[in-house]
Structures are given as structure tokens and as C-alpha cells.
Design a protein around this nucleic acid. Structure first.
Lengths: 185, 185
DNA sequence: CTACGATATGGGGCGTCCCTCCACTTTGCC
DNA sequence: GGCAAAGTGGAGGGACGCCCCATATCGTAG
């Protein structure tokens, strides 16, 4: 179940796959999620058909490019789970938002999109899982008000990080504003 | 000062200009802000060069397409100014957000972008003005906490409406979440 | 080590897009 | 009615995403 692959891919397939992901990571970091797919193929020394065969959509490529980053964020959520639930959730959300605003393309990779892959292996799915986890802990000690759908919170984070891509301080400010509200206390 | 035009445009210029804006409004409403400019020109019965001559960028076109919608929103802000400042601000922000999420392309038109036009005539500038107005009233009666930059609030609205384009209820939910915060009271 | 079938590749072609050039037409004024 | 200025549009350059299919490469079985 963790390895339902019927057959391991050929060596040249693996080589090209790795090259594509590596090059894509570099170019997305430089130019953002909208970088030309043809340029990625060119830079990787591969025909454009090969790129499209390996990744049926731009999103599928981004998904793999940011797999590690998201895994690290997920791990960080687990680490925070020891702390006070309110702080844990707020810290996690802020770190997530700032990371997504600092790392070009990451915000786009977090889109729910039309995922064919098993949900829990997508960037969006992993982040959602972590958020739900920390939210339920915070809810249990009444650190946050009930009735907030996790998906809304994630959409909010995604919206903010996409709007502030390239300006991490702004991302942090906007997230804190959204979490604190605007009311006078 | 309201009419610094040196020379009134020729009649065919005006005719084409109007046609372009009208057609663009229809196609943007149907396909979103990313609609093909060539298709707009084709549908309007003009060469693509004419479109580019009238509107140096996609944003400039959107700017004019949504001029009326934004003017109406601005007027609405003035109308709300009579009410209780807190309610006025919250109502305005929600109406703005929902409108931007309901009207395809409007969220994109609200981008600050690289505006060459006088700031107060752009969609972004008009909305900013209205928001600042209502915010300062709310601040005066301590209905909102101080230290929130108007631009942050506008960016937030813009981010939410772009992320929820086509789903107005979600837009409303996300905005209220962001204005109320997540804390338990 | 060789031969062979399955697997994978890539160049090139198609349709689309944005944008600009320039020969041409339309307009408005004398 | 004629003429300069203003405006037009179609063609074409450069780039892109995506797909087809003739070719090359890989892994294995003999």
C-alpha cells in the first residue's frame, strides 16, 4: 500500500525525472510558479514531450518540487504539538504562511487543484492534515472559537501567502491581523 | 483639472474604445481576467493592434471595465458613512469582498499594479480611499484597534476575493473570519 | 554476449497567445 | 473637395503548451 508500484521505472526514466524536478526547483525559485515548462525541459536537457509525460500538469510538477519543503513543515507541526495548543497553532500558521510567501511557487503548490493523487500525499493534503491536528488540540482546550472550518483557515493562509509572495514581513503581518481580528479590545 | 485632455479623440477612436470596453466586460465576466486579448479584439471587430494602442496593458483594460462597478462601491461607502462606524466599516468590507468574489475579474482589477494613471482614479485608489475614510471614522470611536495599516486590510480583502472567486459565500465567511479573528471569547 | 521486445525519448508540428511594424484608410478642418 | 493628421488592421516574429510517431535505449532471457 505504501508501494503499490507494479514495476520499478527504467533507469533513464528515473534519471530524467530527478533532473526535471531539480531543474524545476531552481527555475521556480528564480521565476515563480509561472515559469515556462519548455525552459525547464530545455535546461534539463530533455524534450518537452518527456516533461509532459512525467508530469501531466504544471501542478503535478510543483507538487513534487515542494514535497520536501512540505514534509519539513509537517514535521515542524508535530514538533510544535508538545507546546501550549494555542501557541502551537498560531506559530505553525505563521511559519507556514511566511514560508509560503518566502518560497516562490510554494503558495501555488498548496492549491487544492484537481488532484488525482491520493489526497494525503499532496502538498495541500499534508498541510490540511497538520492544520486539522493542531486545530483540534487547540479546540479541546478552548483556545480558539469553535465553528471555524479548517479548510477556511487553510484557504486564508493560501490567499495571504499568494498575495504577499516575495514580502515575508507583510505575510506575517497579514496573518496576524487575520488571526487577531480587527476589533478593539 | 477634471478634463486635462488636450484634444478630444476622433469619433472612430471613441467608437472602438467603447466597443472594446463593452466586449471586454462581457468576456471577462464569462472567462475571468485571463481571457485572451485577441479574442476581445476579434469579438469587437477591431485589429489586435488597436486594442493594444487603446490599452497598453491588460490591467489598463480591466481598470476601465470595472470603473462603474467601483464607482458604485465607492458611492455605497459614502452611504454607509451615516451609520454606526463599526457596522459601516464591516458592512463595507464584506460587500466589497463579496462583490469582488462574485464579479469575475474584479479582484484582479483591484490589484495595485504599476499604475501610471493618477492614483485616485484607479480602481485600487478609489477603494483605498473609501476604506481609509471608513477606517478613520471607526478609529475615532475606538471601534477598531489602532495600528492596522489600511493597505494591509485592502490586501487582505483582495487576497480573499481572489482566492474565492466564484464562491461568494466562502468569500463572506473568510472575511468575517479574518475580521473576527480566531480567538475564543 | 547478443538479440529482442518493451519502455522511453525528442524533435517537430499545430494552434494559440501577446505584441509590433507599416502600408493603408478614415476623419475633420480649411 | 482636398489634405495632413490621426487612427486602423493584418501579417508576422517570438514564445508557449501540448501531442504524434519515428527512433533510441534499457533490461533481460537465452
Amino acid at each position: 500500500m505504501t508501494e503499490p508500484k507494479v514495476r520499478p521505472q527504467r533507469s533513464d526514466w528515473q534519471r530524467n525525472h530527478k533532473r526535471l524536478v531539480t531543474v524545476a526547483a531552481a527555475l521556480v525559485a528564480r521565476d515563480g510558479a509561472q515559469v515556462s515548462l519548455e525552459e525547464i525541459a530545455r535546461e534539463a536537457g530533455v524534450g518537452s514531450a518527456t516533461l509532459h509525460r512525467h508530469f501531466p500538469s504544471r501542478h503535478a510538477l510543483l507538487e513534487e518540487v515542494f514535497q520536501d519543503s512540505v514534509a519539513h513543515l509537517r514535521w515542524r507541526a508535530g514538533e510544535l504539538a508538545d507546546k501550549d495548543p494555542r501557541t502551537a497553532l498560531l506559530t505553525w500558521l505563521e511559519e507556514l504562511t511566511v514560508a509560503a510567501a518566502s518560497t516562490r511557487g510554494l503558495a501555488a503548490a498548496l492549491d487544492a487543484a484537481d488532484n488525482t493523487a491520493p489526497y494525503s500525499h499532496t502538498c495541500h493534503g499534508i498541510v490540511r492534515e497538520a492544520t486539522e491536528d493542531l486545530m483540534s488540540r487547540a479546540l479541546r482546550v478552548a483556545a480558539i472559537r469553535p465553528g471555524v472550518p479548517p479548510d477556511d483557515l487553510i484557504t486564508l493562509v493560501q490567499a495571504i501567502s499568494q498575495a504577499t509572495e516575495g514580502d515575508p514581513p507583510a505575510a506575517g503581518r497579514l496573518l496576524r491581523l487575520a488571526l487577531e481580528g480587527i476589533r478593539h479590545r
